[in-house]
Design a protein around this nucleic acid. Structure first.
Lengths: 233, 233
DNA sequence: CGTCCCGTTGAAAGTGGTCAAGAAATGTGG
DNA sequence: CCACATTTCTTGACCACTTTCAACGGGACG
C-alpha cells in the first residue's frame, strides 16, 4: 500500500494548526478502506477498536431500540469523524455506521489515541469539539421533539439535510445521497406515511420536488416558514 | 478563605487515580460558593468563563427554545461536573443551570483548562467521559421520544430520577428534590395535565405516592413494566 | 417480465393536547 | 394567627394531529 498523501486531510477544519510532520505521522498510522453502499462499517454493540475519518461519501448512523425499532442518529459527511467511541471512554460502539453511498474512510486503531492526544493535541481538541457539537445537536433535537409538531420537525430536518449535505441542481438543492421516506421518518420520530403526505403537500405547493429516494428543496424560504412558524405552508 | 480540604473531592469517580499533589493543586485553583434554591448559577447564552463541580445539592439544567418554551436537559447530582462548555470548545453556555435546592459548588476559571489537561490528565479524561456519557443519554432520550408513548416515557423518566437521585423512605424511594408536574412534563415532552393524570392513575394502583413537588415510587417493578412493555399498569 | 422495494392515498381509530374550572397546599402581610 | 394571594395539582369534555390499517401504483433490477 502506498503512503497516504497529506493532501487527503490537510485543509480539513479538524486538522487546522497541525504541522505537516504530525499530519504525516497520523497518515502513517492510518489505514484507508472503501465501503460499498449499504454495508456496515461497524455495528452497534460491537467492541470499539477503531476510529474513523470519512474521506468521501455519506454515512448513516443508526441506533436500534431494545424493541427493534430504528432511529437515525445522524448522517456523517466527508471530512467528519465517526466511530470515536474511544474519545468518549466507551468500550463498544453505541450505534451502527452504514454507508449510504460508496464510501472511503481512514481508520486508526484506538490504541494510539493516547499518543494522538499527546502528539497532536489540536486534533484531539477538534475531536472533543466534534463530540461537544454533537451533544448540542442532539439536545436541540430533544427540544424540537418536545415542543414542535411533526410538520415543523420534518421541515427543519429537510433544511438541515440540504444545508449539511446539499448539492445545487437547476431545480434547487438536492440531498446528496439516497434517502427514503422511512429514513426521514426515523430522523423525526414519525411514520413514513406522514412524511409521504407532507412531501406530497409541499410538492403541490412547489416547495420541494421528490421522488424515489430523492428530495430536492426548491423553496427553502417557504419551508423555513413552515419549520419555524405555526401553519403557513 | 481557608484552603479547601482534599476530602471534598477525593473519592469521587472523577478523581480516581489523581495523586494528592494534583488534587491539592486543583483545590488551590478552585473557588467554593453557595447558591440559594431556585437561583441561576449561569444562564443560557452567557459567555462561559467558569466550569463547576457540584459538591452538594441538585441542579436543573434548562434550555429555552426560540419560542420561549422550556425543556429540562438534565438534573445534576452531587459529585458531577456542570457548565463544562470549555471542554466542548463552546464560547457560551448552551443552557441555564438553576439550583433545585440550596447548593454548594466548586468552580474553576476556564483559563486554566489547558493546564488542567496537562497536569491532571485523568481528570480531563473523566470530563470527556462525562460529556460522552451525556451524549449517550441524550441519544437515548431521542430514541425514546421517537418510539415510545408518553406513558412509557414518563414512567422511564421517574425510574431514572429515583435511580440517580432517589432517597429511601419508609414508603419507597423518593426523588430527593422538589419536582413539579410541569418539571416532569418538560423532561418528557408532554404537558403537566398528562403527567398529573398519569400520576393519579398510578397512585390509584399503588405504584407511586405523590404530592406537591414530591414523588415517591412505591412499586418500581410495576412501573418498569409500564415503562418497557405496552400497557400493563 | 416478474418481483421487490418504495411511494401514495383514503378511511378509521386513538393518543394526548387544549380549554376550562376548581380544589388544595404554601407563602405573605396585616 | 388569620385572610388572601399565589402556586401547584386535579379532572372533565372536546377535538386535532398522527398513527394505524388497507390497498394500490409504479419504478428498478435481476
Amino acid at each position: 500500500m502506498p503512503a497516504l498523501d497529506r493532501s487527503l486531510i490537510a485543509g480539513l477544519p479538524l486538522f487546522e494548526g497541525v504541522a505537516n510532520a504530525e499530519l504525516d505521522w497520523l497518515l502513517s498510522q492510518a489505514r484507508s478502506a472503501r465501503y460499498a453502499k449499504e454495508t456496515a462499517i461497524f455495528e452497534q454493540g460491537e467492541e470499539a477498536e477503531t476510529f474513523y475519518l470519512l474521506l468521501d461519501g455519506h454515512i448513516r448512523v443508526v441506533r436500534l431500540t431494545p424493541e427493534g425499532e430504528q432511529v437515525i442518529a445522524r448522517y456523517i459527511n466527508a471530512g467528519e469523524l465517526f466511530g470515536i467511541a474511544v474519545a468518549m471512554g466507551l468500550r463498544a460502539y453505541p450505534a451502527s455506521a452504514i454507508a449510504a453511498v460508496d464510501c472511503v474512510a481512514l481508520s486508526w486503531p484506538n490504541g494510539i489515541w493516547p499518543e494522538v492526544t499527546a502528539r497532536v493535541p489540536q486534533f484531539a481538541a477538534g475531536t472533543y469539539r466534534t463530540i461537544g457539537a454533537r451533544l448540542q445537536e442532539t439536545q436541540e433535537r430533544v427540544m424540537e421533539m418536545s415542543t414542535a409538531q411533526v410538520e415543523q420537525r420534518v421541515a427543519h430536518t429537510l433544511l438541515r439535510l440540504v444545508q449539511q449535505s446539499g448539492r445545487k441542481t437547476q431545480d434547487g438543492i438536492e440531498i446528496d445521497f439516497p434517502i427514503t421516506r422511512q429514513d426521514i421518518a426515523e430522523m423525526t420520530g414519525t411514520t413514513l406515511h406522514t412524511v409521504s403526505r407532507l412531501l406530497s403537500a409541499w410538492e403541490d405547493k412547489g416547495m420541494v420536488r421528490s421522488g424515489r429516494q430523492k428530495v430536492i428543496v426548491t423553496d427553502a424560504h417557504s419551508l423555513l416558514l413552515v419549520a419555524e412558524h405555526r401553519r403557513k405552508g
